[in-house]
């Protein structure tokens, strides 16, 4: 992996991982309230899960890191996209915490794999990882959630995640043309943020009422 790619992947994967956590905090607060409590718990669970993920990654690090990273990102895309829906349908904090841990563990795989793919550039990869998380912490709660809401933000971030996941394997001809499609779909969906959030609201109320 070349230097620019390594930094870009580190940045966007970190951004997406932390974005999912803010999305889950929003979903958890929607079903049960208590934002400060949820935030404290989510930050702790997520941080711990990152550690678990990095520990587990050691078993796989030497076996085709690129392919494993691709699968991890696909799993993150699925968990991030479907998580809020399942949480709102079930109203279950146990399920919510499960998704937080799952995303944390999967995200914990990212850094060790990126280190392996970008040898001798650990510091750069780590720096872009932190910058990605920093931007996620500002953009998601203070901009995206306020302007396009939970539903459209979830779709946008998941599609962004999928785009970069596909770009990992874009050398395959069948995938190459598919790579930019998810992010285009994600951006298009933002125009329908009112309808998407109304759908989530109806889903939530269906369970409640």
């Amino acid at each position: 992996m070349n230097r620019l790619s390594g930094n870009i992947y580190s940045f966007f994967f970190a951004l997406c991982s932390l974005a999912y956590e803010f999305i889950f905090i929003k979903a958890a607060t929607a079903i049960q309230g208590g934002q400060v409590f949820k935030y404290n718990l989510t930050v702790s669970l997520f941080t711990f899960s990152l550690g678990v993920g990095s520990l587990l990654s050691q078993k796989f690090i030497n076996k085709s890191p690129l392919a494993i990273l691709f699968r991890i990102e696909l799993a993150l895309f699925a968990a991030g996209l479907l998580g809020p829906i399942f949480i709102l349908m079930s109203h279950s904090m146990i399920l919510c915490n499960t998704f937080i841990i799952l995303v944390g563990v999967l995200s914990g795989f990212e850094l060790p794999l990126l280190f392996k793919l970008n040898e001798d550039r650990d510091h750069e990869v780590l720096a872009w990882d932190y910058i990605g998380m920093f931007l996620a912490s500002i953009l998601i709660p203070l901009f995206f959630l306020r302007t396009i809401g939970l539903g459209a933000t979830t779709i946008l971030i998941s599609c962004l995640n999928l785009t970069f996941a596909l770009s990992l394997v874009r050398s395959k001809k069948s995938i190459k043309w598919l790579t930019p499609v998810p992010i285009i779909i994600g951006v298009l969906f933002t125009y329908y943020h009112l309808e998407i959030n109304q759908f989530l609201s109806d889903l939530y109320l269906q369970k409640v009422l």
């Binding site: 803010f22 500002i138 203070l142």
Partner: peptide, 18 residues
């Protein structure tokens, strides 16, 4: 809450990197 939780976490992580 949202402002301090989000910006606080971002700065905390960024300065951890630094």
């Amino acid at each position: 809450e949202t402002f301090y939780q989000s910006l606080g976490l971002g700065l905390y992580l960024l300065l951890m990197g630094a």
